[in-house]
Design a protein around this nucleic acid. Structure first.
Lengths: 214, 214
DNA sequence: TGAATTTATACATGTTTATGCGATTGTCTG
DNA sequence: CAGACAATCGCATAAACATGTATAAATTCA
């Protein structure tokens, strides 16, 4: 039996969801609230398995409710409900520990499946939401491609050491070369990166993710 | 009619998928290959709507195939198939532009739905995969919270300018303070960050995402 | 109100960087 | 083979930085 808590400000929808779940095998609605002003107390008191949380609620918003619950309970599964597949909301919900993100227009049968899914550790998402998540993800990481600035292997090594906070002297010792050689490499690196100080080179290296993040 | 191209090294599965799709209303398999050694030619020649791509293939791997296709075609939908919900593969597939990621054990009926879904712009994912994606996403972004190192407002400003490549002199001019004041601020910053050079401070600022990425 | 913190300034000394001009050796390629 | 490039080393100089020690007004907060 999956114990569910519902937060939804629209009465029809709230009651509809309650009836749907209570009328389905394996689901039980512990309570349904019109806002999440007391969400922490309610969750700790009732100990639900899954929470359906509307995002767009007056007063304490669903995102705020999500945060509050997560502060005291990391295991309860929280599914966000919304009418819009709004990019910003999706992002915030995910980074705040939501387990899934569903559009309200999801069909009842699917909804039940999604809830069960979340309960067993899945992360159900309406596919339009998933698309957004993938795009965000891809855009974040595509950052790091290309732009090697035609550095030679040796230059890359030297730059890496610079980024790691080594002085010329230390680089020389590390690589068994003279400090003058280090200088000449670094001069070349500056040319290629089009900078003229260690700081700028390091900043550029980080911005272009050219270095080994340790 | 959704035109599908299949890449799968296991004959039974390849033929099974072909039969399933050809026997279903609205789907047509253009071809099914055992490897993606010639994937670019095949895709440009046949112009499919959706590609089912096995990840674990001998020879040219599915990830490699994905990359090659994406170099010449940004619109065709590519669904990755795999037996394992391996973290690393999922990550690479996503950042290389896959539209969805399915486990091979997905039921036939669902598979058809997923393909149609991808065709209309969705990003179908087995929910266990989705869970991983969300976790990766959350962990990436939680990076940037906290760890302000108790820098004062002024110190933060100075650090920001350092990161932007300003010299002491330039910072002094920018902030209308003397260079000696800049020195003392920076000395304090080093103490708090527990570093002892500009380079290390900058690196630490980037690693902790304390600065404004411009 | 009084103590602590932040912000500001000053001076001195030694270290590190940035940059210029050269020069030698080996490798690769047209 | 000649020319391009990578990697190495040397020397010189001016600028920038790191660090220590001191002082003091302004602000914050218990």
């Amino acid at each position: 039996m999956i114990k569910v808590l519902i937060y939804e400000d629209i009465r029809e929808l709230r009651e509809g969801l309650t009836m749907l779940l209570n009328g389905s095998e394996g689901f039980e609605v512990l309570a349904a609230y019109r806002n999440c002003d007391n969400v922490v107390d309610e969750v700790t008191g009732l100990q639900p398995d899954v929470i359906l949380m509307d995002i767009d609620m007056p007063g304490t918003t669903g995102l705020e409710g999500l945060k509050r619950v997560r502060e005291v309970n990391k295991v309860v599964k929280i599914l966000m409900l919304t009418v819009f597949d709004d990019n910003d909301h999706v992002f915030k919900a995910i980074t705040n520990g939501a387990n899934g993100y569903l559009l309200k227009k999801t069909k009842p049968a699917l909804l039940l499946e999604y809830i069960a899914d979340a309960h067993t550790g899945g992360a159900p998402m309406t596919s339009s939401i998933a698309t957004q998540v993938l795009q965000m993800f891809a855009s974040m990481n595509n950052h790091k491609k290309e732009e090697t600035f035609n550095l030679t292997e040796r230059e890359r090594q030297v730059l890496q050491l610079l980024v790691d906070g080594y002085s010329y002297k230390m680089i020389a010792a590390e690589k068994f070369i003279s400090i003058d050689t280090v200088r000449s490499h670094i001069k070349k690196i500056y040319e290629k990166l089009q900078v003229n100080s260690k700081s700028e080179a390091i900043a550029k290296a980080f911005k272009n993710r050219m270095t080994e993040d340790r």
